[in-house]
């Protein structure tokens, strides 16, 4: 019912959902924070037991996996992100970006278990149901995996597209970036910086400094949206070198996958982390 990203079979969409599978598939193609996934069987066991308490065996399994993750990361009480990974999301056709719940900065196995249950419940949240209806997806057969991954305390978060999703221009990489954790930029809460990079020579075509009204910061046991100080709203979030590094990464990922990619990235301690990679679902 549980596999680490590096375990054989962890890249099965049917078993772990789109998000979990794509992380497993990325393998060594990016600097990915370590983590594990719960399969749809775990969800099913919980649903069969009446959707209240988590079965005892699964609780033990999660506790053990969390301890292993602590060891892998070399961090006691390693903070993690707990994200839903529905089987019918992040397929080449549809993106559920942000519709299912995500819990950040979760510390300790008990809290992870609590967050997992909340994720399972979010399969049936209003926006997700509406999205399924609108896209002709069946709700009754919806299945969900959950990803538990070390949380990188992003100083800067970015979303990058290997093709421009707005103009459909395949020769352009589009990068959105903001200070702090990724929520503010992923959820469309703020106007991030926008950088357009020419795929052929990696030159920056456009740099639009966004208003960056808010940023997601870490609190003792979660995250919070805070105002970006006025002086930093007018600054470029990414250095030229960081923008180039991101452009190169997404071009490589597209070349490897054979389809244009939409990725989530974090920069911490000058290190670029790849958090998610999925197809761009809106390109013509």
């Amino acid at each position: 019912m549980l596999s680490f990203f590096t375990d054989p079979g962890a890249d099965s969409v049917d078993m772990f959902g789109g998000k979990a599978a794509s992380l497993a598939k990325l393998g060594s193609r990016g600097n990915i924070p370590p983590g594990f996934s719960l399969s749809i069987n775990a969800f099913q066991a919980w649903a069969d037991a009446g959707s209240s308490e988590m079965p005892a065996a699964l609780i033990d399994e999660i506790k053990q996996a969390y301890t292993t993750l602590e060891r892998t990361c070399g961090v006691i009480d390693v903070p993690v992100a707990v994200r839903s990974s529905a089987v019918d999301e992040d397929g080449v056709g549809e993106s559920f970006a942000g519709l299912h719940d995500t819990y950040l900065n979760i510390i300790g196995a008990e809290n992870v278990i609590e967050a997992v249950i909340k994720c399972w419940r979010s399969l049936a949240n209003d926006e997700a149901i509406a999205y399924r209806k609108a896209n002709g997806l069946d709700f009754d057969s919806a299945q969900m995996g959950v990803v538990i991954q070390q949380l990188v305390f992003a100083d800067v978060s970015a979303v990058a597209f290997s093709a421009n999703p707005i103009t459909n221009n395949r020769n352009e990489v589009l990068i959105n970036a903001n200070y702090g954790l990724g929520e503010a930029v992923v959820s469309g809460l703020v106007t991030p910086d926008t950088i357009i990079v020419d795929r052929n020579d990696l030159t920056q075509q456009t740099v639009a400094i966004g208003a960056k009204e808010k940023m997601t910061v870490r609190t003792e046991n979660g995250t919070e949206e805070k105002k970006v100080p006025r002086i930093m709203q007018g600054m470029a979030v990414l250095t030229d070198a960081q923008a180039t590094e991101i452009a190169e990464l997404v071009i490589n990922l597209e070349n490897h996958n054979g389809w244009p990619v939409d990725v989530e990235l974090a920069i911490h301690d000058s290190q670029l982390y790849l958090l998610q990679c999925r197809p761009i679902t809106t390109l013509n």
Binding site: F153, A154, D155, V156, Y179, G180, M215, V217, R218, T219, E220, K226, V228, P229, I231, M232, V237, H268, D269
Partner: peptide, 15 residues
């Protein structure tokens, strides 16, 4: 500011 992004902390310390 412990949980704030490093660039914000740096900006604060500089200021």
């Amino acid at each position: 500011l412990a949980g704030y992004p490093e660039p914000v902390k740096q900006q604060f310390n500089m200021m």
